[in-house]
């Protein structure tokens, strides 16, 4: 077995097993940590596929940003961080969920394997170039894709204004109640 294949399966296991953990864990803090492991595995897969920038972004945004946000959210809101209560488990049969997910999996796999993907460049002959992607991506973002880049800036401005407004609103209400 080639070295690459071994690394791939190692990363795949490191992604899938924590994903089961996310599904099974009942404590939301544990879910968050399982998610951390799973997302790290995905970052490794990205890097293996020569998408080094995407891999680093995955670490920065998902692991660094979103997970920390989830943990902060738990710390600030819930005192009892339990995701599902025992009653919920009894009412729901696991088989329906299993059936739906297996059907989705089957349909997706069938479609993915049966499709002629339009692969170009280094991927077409099964070899990766090994070139770093951050530089060309950065160049593209500020030349060819400068308009989408600026639209995203406006979008983030809207998000910032909206978040500030909604958060301030809650504070005002508390102040008027007190």
């Amino acid at each position: 077995m080639e070295f690459e294949t071994i690394v791939f399966y190692a990363l795949a296991v490191a992604t899938v097993i924590p994903a089961f953990g996310v599904m099974m864990a009942k404590d939301i803090v544990r879910v968050a940590f399982w998610l951390l492991a799973s997302l790290s595995g995905v970052a490794g897969l990205f890097i293996m596929l020569d998408a080094d920038f995407l891999g680093v972004t995955q670490v920065l945004v998902y692991i660094g940003g979103i997970l920390v946000l989830i943990l902060f959210g738990i710390m600030m809101t819930h005192r009892d961080p339990v995701l599902v209560s025992a009653d919920d488990d009894r009412r729901r049969s696991p088989f329906t969920g299993l059936l739906v997910s297996l059907m989705t999996f089957g349909a997706l796999m069938g479609v993915i394997l049966g499709t002629g993907w339009n692969v170009s460049g280094g991927l077409a002959n099964g070899k990766l170039s090994g070139e770093p992607t951050a530089a060309p991506l950065g160049k593209a973002l500020l030349t060819d894709y400068v308009l989408p880049f600026e639209i995203v800036s406006v979008l983030l401005l809207v998000v910032l204004c909206g978040a500030a407004y909604i958060a301030r609103r809650g504070k005002d209400e508390e102040a008027s109640n007190a």
């Binding site: 989408p148 639209i151 995203v152 406006v154 979008l155 809207v158 998000v159 909206g162 407004y165």
Partner: peptide, 17 residues
């Protein structure tokens, strides 16, 4: 598709607020 999606997202984000 890129500008199409971003334009639509800008509309909906403003609409939520």
């Amino acid at each position: 598709m890129v500008t199409f999606y971003l334009g639509l997202e800008l509309i909906t984000l403003c609409s939520y607020i």
